[in-house]
């Protein structure tokens, strides 16, 4: 399964990068989201994966009795997911605003800094 997940990470990265190289700003943002997903999955995988062992201490116990999934990557990713929502919404509003001014979605037409 790890191999499959590693390939998934590669696919998400490749797709994200292909999309951020496109001229459409919307595609750029979709690409960023896919890249973010790929990065999250990468961190998750590098913390090693295990089934049915959530990092929650069982009832009636004060410490883990059994093996448990690594909580640090999970905490990192949780933060990353929420932050990336803020980033995405800001980016997409920026696109919307830029579109209102320039009437274009094409990045390559935005080569001057004037009048925005």
């Amino acid at each position: 399964m790890e191999i499959l997940l590693a390939i998934t990470i590669g696919l998400l990265y490749a797709a994200g990068i292909f999309l951020i190289l496109r001229r459409s700003m919307v595609r750029l943002i979709i690409g960023l989201i896919l890249l973010g997903n790929g990065a999250n999955l990468l961190i998750f995988l590098l913390g090693r994966i295990s089934k049915g062992k959530p990092p929650i201490i069982p009832e009636e116990s004060k410490v883990f009795l059994d093996a448990y999934a690594d909580p640090i990557p999970q905490a990192l990713i949780l933060t990353a997911i929420v932050i990336s929502f803020g980033l995405q919404s800001y980016a997409i509003i920026l696109v919307k605003r830029a579109y209102r001014v320039t009437k274009t979605d094409d990045i390559e037409e935005l080569t001057t800094t004037d009048e925005i």
Partner: peptide, 11 residues
């Protein structure tokens, strides 16, 4: 769903 499989309910 992948997070569910691999013990990350919060995620």
């Amino acid at each position: 769903i992948i997070f569910v499989f691999y013990s990350a309910p919060d995620l």
